[in-house]
Design a binder for these strands. Structure first.
Lengths: 151, 151
DNA sequence: CCACACTTCCCCACGATTCCCCACTTTTGG
DNA sequence: CCAAAAGTGGGGAATCGTGGGGAAGTGTGG
């Protein structure tokens, strides 16, 4: 079955069970198997959330960052910070990934996780943090900026 | 059979059944199959209504937003808020889509839904909200604004 | 080198939602 | 006036999210 859209979209509040597993939403899984290879790289993102990239996309980041590191020595520290938190997570038969304890704690994840489709990546948030951090996205200023493209 | 006009026009009040499904009007469906690919992306719009884009049109938005995000970092939050509400909805054999509960609630949809053709997109409103929000469309100010293009 | 605790992985199982199909009523069009 | 299509409703199968039991694997300490 072909994916309808080849990017991750949508928002789901799913539970993180006692073993630290989260289900990857079915529509994300479809994108993942259609366009990618069923494996996700999980890592820290700024501001207490996690990101999951298909390995292909992660490799692109890796390449781009390597390029950047040639000219900017600061980038290598950035690379250490973020790549050290990265972990390849394969989905189990039920379509779930195991979130490493360290990442779980970093993002302040409790029994619930917000899974947010962001195109070529998936973000994992504590639901409350998500609302707090992204509340002002609805402001008039941003609306105006965005209205220009026809929203 | 070719559609006479390849854009969504008109206003229909249809019912939202117990399972959360709405019929897409036949003339909309014709545009959808003629010009697009029978799939709609449903998402939140400002002020308590929903929008349905053909996948092609949604992709255009996505591209424009990606462009905007390069220059305005705030836009990434906007992308989170709005794209996270998006969901690809395929029509069933009867030409209906299932409205996700979260979106249904956001738009305050009850047993009835107003489907409004808006050219390249379709809007879904609670009928009462629609009337209230759009009552002043007939005002002199708006008339003046529109006169510029020869109405 | 072995025993132990602990984490990770592979199953199976349950309830709820979603999807697919068929059926009925009303409207449209020839 | 009849046939086709449109809008509405619901039954049942398949899928999805969730939970947990137990095996396999890992690392630690004796």
């Amino acid at each position: 079955m072909a994916a309808l859209i080849d990017r991750f979209i949508g928002h789901h509040n799913y539970s993180l069970d006692a073993k630290g597993r989260v289900s990857i939403p079915a529509d994300f899984r479809e994108v993942l198997s259609e366009r990618y290879d069923d494996k996700l790289v999980l890592m820290k993102h700024y501001d207490r959330c996690l990101v999951a990239y298909p390995v292909d996309e992660w490799n692109k980041l890796d390449a781009a960052l390597a390029e950047l590191a040639k000219t900017n020595p600061q980038v290598i520290k950035f690379k250490r910070m973020y790549y050290s938190s990265a972990k390849v997570c394969e989905l189990d038969a039920q379509g779930r990934v195991l979130v490493p304890p360290a990442l779980k704690e970093y993002a302040g994840l409790g029994r619930e996780v917000a899974l947010v489709g962001m195109g070529e990546r998936i973000e994992l948030w504590d639901p409350e943090t998500y609302l707090r951090e992204n509340a002002e996205a609805d402001s008039a200023a941003i609306r105006d900026a965005v209205a220009a493209i026809g929203f």
